[in-house]
Design a protein around this nucleic acid. Structure first.
Lengths: 347, 347
DNA sequence: CTGAAAGCGCTTACAG
DNA sequence: CTGAAAGCGCTTACAG
């Protein structure tokens, strides 16, 4: 009655070859206690039969599931594909599977998602927390991907340095007045980016910050950002804190007849999928997600293998900051000379 | 030495309560062979101890892992968040976990990804195949999400009907000449959408199709699409076969000083995350991913539970076509009267 | 170098 | 209504 996998198991291979299951197990796992000749014979036969080891049996015996959990605040987040891909790749390279869990918004769902993963017996998990959530202890090692500003150790891109990259780029292009455009002033990531930009401004440059969420709170969701007026006021560069906002900025400017980058430069963050596709293509700052995932996963594996702190939250080794990288595309260009627009044209 | 989960197990609960493990198991699983009183006591005690059942033990015994696999052609695909979210939700609602696997491009990687999932003991899997791939048998039930044009049974959005929705919308707005913009002429999904659009044209309307891939093959990746000229030629509506292309179309038009939607309408497909964010917001056709995921997952669970065809590929019940839904936003509007541009202004 | 045996935690007939 | 026992497939000391 029990729905058992129809495939062969160790014991079938063993009897069929007239050896013990222990020997088959050893031969297959390559622990080296079996004669080379026998190893060859066993492996060959196993392959012939299409033997697939039972994770369940192994997990029960070893206490390891070989699976990592990935908890996301909201899968709909456009950054998610990159995160998931990078984590999946890092995990698969280490022979681990990845179980996903979406916390769909609120914090209680996040806790539930974590519990679901624990129940499934993950050996560890990577959590991208909801804004400013502190992760309560899960009964397995946990690596958190977030800003340095989040309490506890985390791995993350160096958002501050990323901001400085933007500032330096805009300074190079001769921009003086910069409008920083963010979504949510509560976001640690966004605040780090703002801090980086501001700290990287050269003498003579100034920046203001526009928070879309605040604006929409008053003017309604999807309201115009009033950027044309900002251009008139003398802002020549619009530094969005994410490509999603950059896209909004770019299209609003273009809709209002402002040429990008001739009249205004636009930059973003994250190098999301569409950033290279729009016209003009978006200058942006990219996280090294593969590196971040690699650090998170190897910290997890380390902790799993050494067995330290198997209970209770265990975070990554240090506050790792992975450098970001500037990608210059067509949406940013030299600032127009401020007062004498038409001179210097052919210089 | 074995790294066993430190938490309590059935036997600990049993001895601590002076009953048998069988009784504890029955009480917890609610099979109803235990007196209500005892059930209460056992449950309470289990909760106190923070008992979490071992999936490994259960899986080994029942032959079910409680996990479904999700194989994706490329996680970087912007549609992925919606698919993953919908599948995760449907699976979680049914008490299943979701293991992801990225086939990162080529077909061999897809086979590997499927194998990895089988090795992890998934009870079934959902596959979003690479373009025109036929899924080779995996040793568990498989549901395929793709177009009807793919060989074998699949679940999918009704892309053809989605195309008709676009055609009807553009007809309503008085558009006569439509430029369909696709990425890849090999894509079944895109071809279905084209077919739907063409079949839905009213008398007096005509459509041409522009394949970006072909154009880029000649003119280089990221080349201009030459849409301004198309507007001059009399095309008043640009129907992209995906929001990603729609975004490219929209920004190129705007960059070239063409007002959307006053001078040209733009529509897309899929309602991707940024579609509502751009200015003007994108009119698009949306798949009902939740419905699609629900169908795929329940077909899988059905097959898992009835135990039919546990070996070999098993696909979903019928070729299920889930209707798409038109979302009208600001990027589409009435066609300009063709010849007499300035008349009728106040009609 | 090879094998016999124990046991991971669970569920499920089967007795009582 | 409750319990004793078997067994899912594996790995790992321990003997030989």
């Amino acid at each position: 009655m029990a729905q058992l996998r129809p495939g062969p198991n160790l014991s079938r291979i063993a009897t069929s070859l007239g050896v013990s299951v222990a020997t088959v197990s050893n031969a297959l796992s390559g622990k080296g206690r079996v004669s080379e000749q026998l190893v060859g014979k066993i492996r060959e036969h196993a392959a012939e039969l299409g033997y697939v080891p039972s994770q369940a049996g192994r997990a029960l015996r070893t206490g390891r599931s070989g699976v990592l959990g990935l908890v996301l605040p909201d899968i709909a987040n456009p950054l998610f594909p990159k995160i998931a891909q990078a984590i999946e790749f890092a995990a698969a390279s280490a022979g681990y599977g990845v179980l996903i869990a979406d916390s769909r918004g609120d914090v209680s769902a996040q806790t539930e998602a974590i519990n679901r993963l624990v129940e499934r017996g993950v050996d560890g998990m990577v959590i991208v927390p909801r804004r400013a959530t502190r992760i309560s202890a899960a009964s397995c090692p946990v690596a958190v991907i977030d800003t340095a500003s989040t309490p506890g150790n985390t791995v993350a891109a160096d958002h501050w340095q990323g901001g400085q990259l933007i500032a330096a780029h805009l300074a190079d292009l001769g921009h003086k007045r910069i409008l920083i455009i963010g979504n949510n002033p509560e976001s640690n990531v966004q605040n780090d980016r703002v801090g980086g930009i501001r700290s990287g401004l050269c003498p003579g440059m100034s920046a203001e910050t526009l928070w879309i969420e605040k604006l929409e709170h008053q003017a309604g969701s999807g309201c115009p950002l009033g950027l044309a007026r900002k251009v008139e006021e003398g802002f020549s560069a619009f530094a969005a804190l994410s490509d999603l906002q950059a896209l909004r900025v770019l299209t609003e400017l273009q809709r209002d007849g402002i040429d990008v980058p001739a009249e205004a430069s636009v930059t973003g963050f994250d190098d999301l999928i569409w950033s290279a596709v729009v016209t003009p293509a978006l200058t942006t700052v990219k996280m090294d997600m593969d590196a971040i995932a690699e650090i998170a996963v190897s910290a997890l594996l380390n902790s799993i293998n050494t067995g330290r702190t198997r209970e209770g939250t265990l975070v990554t080794a240090e506050n790792d900051r992975v450098p970001m990288q500037l990608i210059i595309r067509q949406s940013s260009g030299p600032a127009k000379p401020v007062q004498e627009n038409l001179q210097m044209e052919n210089s």
